[in-house]
Design a protein around this nucleic acid. Structure first.
Lengths: 207, 207
DNA sequence: GTCTATAATCTGATAGAC
DNA sequence: GTCTATCAGATTATAGAC
């Protein structure tokens, strides 16, 4: 390693293998639950002995950390795309609904990812400082998007996140694969917007 | 066992030990997480060898089941008490706020219990038919209480549960021990009541 | 960089003596 | 009813050969 350039062919190969391991980890986890990630299982899937994975990740939690990071990066992309798609609708309500739908859809489309990103469910795992910084940044981008539709103060923002995660949670745990709670999103958004109107100055309603 | 009365001294003693084991299980679980319940740990805490516990519960899942049942029984009592306390406030808004506060308080006061009762987080555990029946009955009592304050149709009820669990979830995972989301409960209830008003006939507003 | 071998430890659960 | 002994398996992780 020492003395050699970072963008070595060896380094590139290594990063590819790391990506492959993370991808396989998602497969395992979607099949056996978030806590059901075993190194043996993972090794088998990636075509290695379980022990060889330690050449790429120092511990199992380092793998979770890579998944955590990847998940938040995917979230950032998802929300950005959704906003672009619905740019035509330039009324605040339309945008708000689109953002809300995008959020819930992202979460329900992969519930183990949701578990890893937004719930604290695997013991002894804490994201690394780097990954957590990215998570915070993505959360701030999401907040900024909401602030363009009239959600300015922290309390209002907290209420929005509570409602959106609540809908997501119920959908995942009580009607997986269905749309019993998803279909309430527009109604929930209207409700939130009406609430925001009574708690902020009319000025803040404008973009 | 056969031929002897059910309320035998032996049977009573046995039930006491079972209660003791369940209580110790709560302790273990609060310390090491819901999934961190180990028979050895449990045995140590209850003053037995781990293997002896199998004289009282046929499997680990049977212990989870007993905890699940106990949790729902506690929930029923909690909600009933909260409603009595706030009987003085006979305006619908006051009652609604009291019920909402009681729900969130119950959940946040013991987050592993919340996890066991309302989220599906431990793999391979499904409550027994008996326990599940109790859970359903308690849920229906809770629904009935909401229906006295204007929440009649399923969609509205779903929205309420989504908002209440959302507030709970955010409080637990992003501000444990604090009240950042708890203090939004009254505002959330007002918002929900306003929404219910626009989605039902004015008749249903009356008790 | 991947392998074999293995350490060290944990898990839930069972059989049978007392 | 509690014990000892033990099974059969899992886990993360390390050492050292190739």
């Amino acid at each position: 390693m020492s003395g050699k350039p970072n963008s070595d062919r060896r380094t590139v190969r290594r990063q590819e293998t790391q990506r492959e391991i993370v991808q396989a980890s998602w497969e395992v986890v979607r099949e056996h639950g978030l806590a059901g990630l075993s190194m043996r299982d993972l090794g088998e899937r990636v075509g290695m002995r379980a022990q060889s994975i330690y050449s790429y990740f120092a511990s199992k939690n380092e793998i979770y950390d890579a998944m955590f990071l990847e998940g938040y990066e995917a979230f950032a992309v998802w929300i950005a795309n959704a906003a672009d798609d619905d740019r035509a609708a330039d009324d605040p309500t339309g945008v708000a609904r689109a953002v809300a739908r995008a959020f819930v859809e992202f979460c329900t489309s992969d519930h183990v990812r949701y578990q890893l990103l937004f719930q604290r469910t695997i013991p002894d795992f804490t994201p690394s400082a780097e990954s957590y910084a990215v998570a915070l940044q993505v959360y701030e981008e999401f907040s900024a998007r909401l602030s363009t539709i009239g959600v300015h103060d922290q309390a209002t923002l907290d209420l929005w996140t509570a409602v959106l995660t609540g809908v997501t949670d119920q959908q995942i745990s009580n009607d997986p694969g269905g749309d019993r709670w998803k279909q309430l999103i527009d109604r929930a958004v209207d409700m939130l917007l009406a609430d925001a109107r009574t708690h902020t100055t009319t000025e803040s309603e404008k973009v």
